[in-house]
Design a binder for these strands. Structure first.
Lengths: 293, 293
DNA sequence: TATTGCATTTTATTATCATAATATGTAGAA
DNA sequence: TTCTACATATTATGATAATAAAATGCAATA
């Protein structure tokens, strides 16, 4: 038995790639260029292109390579289920849910988890290390792993909001902070779309993703990787906890309005006002959305 | 072949434990109590005690268990080399050094590293995941791992100081911040000892450790695990980079003096002054100690 | 001259098994 | 009743080998 292939993921990545570049029918797709873009060798790109040829997305010419067969904008939704990510993510979420529902005890052995989720050790360990990185499990000195309180305690939940509020506000006050105006416009569009009704029709995951991207964009403008890393880390955690909570869609119009207000303040150069408002925005969200314990 | 035994580590832990509790000759050391303290089962504690009996640290009585054979304060230095930690840490540092000296390329395969450092895959992966958690390596989608710029770039170095300065200052301003007066006194003693000549005789590692503990103590008083986690993470990284730099001992008196000043301010309840001073303290250290590139 | 297409090498995953460690249930001593 | 001491069960590590995938070198081609 060998590992899962990368090529389904690469297929998706290629579609995303041509879309983001707004490529048109007939454009050439050099192997090495794609391989570099995805940080892999030409091999998995090649097999991904063969797949896409079968689906009519690209056209092969002997000894000349692959060419886009349709305009990128006419491509349907890329998201084809990719076994690797799916399988791994699925177990990750199951572990989180099982723990939140106390179906998993505080201490578990690797063998137990392997049996429970029917995973080979190597995959399980990959997931456990990811979870450890997120801070809600740790390896015990002897056998087994111990879940930490991070996921389940109300205190952690509020502490997380305080942390985010501080990091994001302070990131904005760094001398290196500089907004990317193009990104800013795109974000404005997204938030406007949300505000104009998207908050009723978008899926929970989409709303959550848009929200995270907004905040990570702001912190990214600080050009300080430590600030960005810490926000990313805590957002991954947040995803787990808040998935448990039914989204309160009635709050979304206010949220997007505040997001737009922040963008306005930044654009007009009123940075410290924007930072202060951002702080209040986050702390407010934490207070209101906090689950009742 | 099986894994390394925990018992040498547990032996050290037991010695540390009885020292910290200032236990006296003749006191009982119940198995389960020690096992709970170290989060392991009774088995490795048992074998550690047998070792310690051989060394005359404890005395066994049939069916009654083990008893301390000397006053804890008369115990010598605990640090017996423990294969597990030692071996693992050693490779970790070798990887860091080899990377900093460009003896390792930006991209490496697991197989390569296994050959180079003569490690089984599982141990190597443990180390790589630790490094990934610290943020200076990442898994590539296909084969292999890629080192990130974090370790080598001057920019990252300064960004790290900016991050620390913000986190520590803000941690001190949180409403939940509350100094532990006992810890505070101990820290004052350590800093005074350093100031009274220790800065000339202590080893680099000891000085570094004392410094880290000082700062982690401050952030710990915020009672917010996210602040503390992020400081711990960045300190682990700092250890690597600053080990490369010869310590400038002439700066230590000023540093310890500033530490003592911070403790004074906290003790007299002037928290925001302390926070502001702490910020300047950290930023100053970053500017001066930054390696010349 | 850049890029493909193919052949070859190298890599990572997985199952299996032996082994030494950790974890645990329990009778019996204190 | 608490705790040890022992017996037993369970766990994690590491070696080995099979396999499929990824990485790469290079001749052929546009």
């Amino acid at each position: 038995m060998a590992r899962n292939s990368l090529s389904p993921q690469i297929s998706n990545s290629i579609i995303e790639f041509v879309k983001s570049k707004e490529m048109r029918k007939g454009e050439h797709l050099p192997l090495q260029m794609l391989a570099d873009a995805f940080r892999v060798s030409r091999a998995p790109v090649m097999s991904a292109l063969r797949r896409l040829e079968g689906e009519g997305v690209v056209r092969a010419e002997a000894n000349r390579g692959y060419f886009l067969a349709v305009d990128a904008e006419n491509l349907g939704d890329a998201s084809r289920p990719t076994e690797r990510e799916d399988g791994e993510d699925a177990v990750y979420f199951r572990i989180a849910e099982d723990r939140l529902a106390s179906r998993l005890p505080e201490r578990v052995s690797e063998a137990e988890l392997m049996r429970l989720y029917e995973l080979p050790r190597s995959r399980l360990l990959k997931i456990l290390h990811r979870i450890a990185d997120e801070g809600w499990i740790e390896r015990l000195p002897g056998n087994g792993w111990a879940f930490r309180q991070t996921l389940t305690s109300r205190q952690s939940y509020e502490d997380g909001y305080a942390f985010r509020a501080v990091i994001e506000q302070q990131a904005m006050l760094l001398p290196s902070f500089e907004p990317d105006l193009e990104e800013l416009q795109r974000a404005r569009q997204t938030q406007t779309a949300l505000s104009a009704g998207g908050y009723q029709t978008w899926s929970r995951a989409e709303i959550f993703k848009a929200n995270n991207e907004f905040h990570e964009m702001l912190v990214g403008w600080s050009k300080n990787e430590f600030f960005l890393d810490s926000i990313r880390r805590i957002n991954r955690l947040r995803r787990l906890i808040e998935y448990q909570i039914t989204i309160d869609r009635s709050r979304l119009p206010k949220q997007t309005e505040e997001h737009l207000h922040i963008l306005d303040l930044i654009e007009s150069g009123r940075r410290s006002e924007a930072a202060a408002f951002l702080y209040t925005h986050i702390m407010g969200a934490g207070r209101i959305k906090a689950p009742q314990v």
